[in-house]
């Protein structure tokens, strides 16, 4: 496959259109705006629909309406915008509507700054809005995965009637890398639950209000059962040199790339380190981590937040081995050398 040097934020628009996206509703925000720019160009030129909403709140509700009417629909934003969308994401879960949201994470809290952080982890992976619900969360670590995850996200969303969040970050979005594109266009199928405004779908209703406790309780049980099936079917991760490792680094997105370099450097010094990189953050690859927790001496979780994923790693390994936490904030992205030092300090301590 011939590869093209392209920004992650541009590649994801192409991946989405090839994956069958028909509608994009968005609101600009750095460092995700290029996705809206690309969508405004390519969705429009290809006879799909692009519309800039008046707010992220409106954008997510346009998504709700389009998804209800059968579209393959997406948006892209960053932390402050996704915070505003949480209400709508809860309603999407309540009506079991499929949607794709790209979160190009920036640093917070509040307005923060436009550099990378991974502090939207909890907001995206734990549902985020009100109610007991989950989103499928994919964590790309390259321009290629921005493309590939967008390409498959609409199938996933449709199959499970769930929101799929592609949890990227400012560097994965802003970076240019060689990317190869799929050569086949996917298309959404007619959905038997959607409201198309035609005779066949007239009986359909999309709502999230169920006033009687029994009914809402049963609905929640059904949702939870679905989430257990999703966990069993789509959990995905990558392992680098974990077979013989004494120390296991766990990282996702931009941090996993720094960790990959750190693993190389530490191995050169004779320290047996491996890397575990979740590709799905929800469902989280807990079972495999639990196994690895038995074979390694220690685990270190590197992330640009206060240990949000480390909490999930802790839950997975259940005290079988110590879990070190390497955290950075504020948009600061460490070098591989800094991570190497941290690992050496923790491991040889």
């Amino acid at each position: 496959m011939t590869k093209t040097l392209i920004k992650g934020n541009h590649a994801i628009v192409r991946g989405a259109l090839l994956g069958g996206a028909t509608h994009f509703f968005g609101y600009p925000i750095t460092p995700a705006s290029e996705i809206a720019h690309g969508a405004a160009d390519l969705f429009t030129r290809s006879g799909r629909t692009f519309l800039q909403a008046e707010s992220e709140t409106s954008a997510i509700n346009m998504i709700y309406g389009a998804a209800a009417a059968g579209a393959r629909v997406m948006t892209a934003s960053s932390g402050p915008g996704v915070s505003l969308m949480l209400e709508g994401i809860s309603y999407l879960a309540g009506s079991e509507l499929p949607a794709v949201i790209v979160d190009v994470q920036r640093a917070g809290p509040g307005l923060g700054n436009i550099w990378p952080e991974q502090t939207d982890y909890n907001m995206c992976c734990k549902g985020g809005g009100h109610g007991a619900f989950r989103n499928i969360v994919l964590a790309p670590a390259s321009g290629q995965e921005m493309t590939d995850f967008a390409y498959k996200a609409f199938d996933l969303a449709d199959k499970w009637r769930m929101t799929v969040i592609i949890l990227s970050d400012a560097y994965i979005g802003q970076m240019m890398e060689p990317v190869g594109f799929p050569s086949e266009v996917k298309h959404g199928q007619r959905k038997d639950w959607a409201v198309y405004g035609d005779a066949e779908s007239r009986e359909n209703l999309l709502t999230s209000i169920i006033m009687n406790q029994k009914g809402l309780s049963e609905f929640n049980e059904k949702l939870q059962a679905k989430y257990r099936r999703v966990e069993a079917e789509i959990v995905d991760w990558e392992e680098i040199q974990t077979e013989d490792s004494d120390y296991l680094l766990v990282a996702f997105g931009i941090t996993s790339r720094i960790a990959a370099t750190a693993v190389r450097m530490l191995r050169e010094e004779g320290i047996k380190v491996g890397l575990f990189r979740p590709r799905t953050l929800w469902p989280f690859p807990s079972a495999r981590l639990a196994e690895l927790g038995e074979s390694v001496k220690s685990i270190g979780v590197a992330e640009l937040n206060d240990g949000m994923m480390a909490d999930d790693v802790d839950l997975a390994v259940k005290g079988k081995c110590p879990v070190d936490r390497f955290n950075w904030f504020g948009g600061y992205v460490p070098s591989a050398e800094e991570l190497v030092e941290k690992v050496k300090e923790a491991f040889n301590g």
Binding site: S58, G65, A68, A69
Partner: peptide
Amino acid sequence: GNIQCAHGRAPAVGTGASRTREDA
């Protein structure tokens, strides 16, 4: 065909629906 909306958001939901089903 019925869609129930979040508080105040129906015109945005309607925008999404009518941009998807232009004859609705």
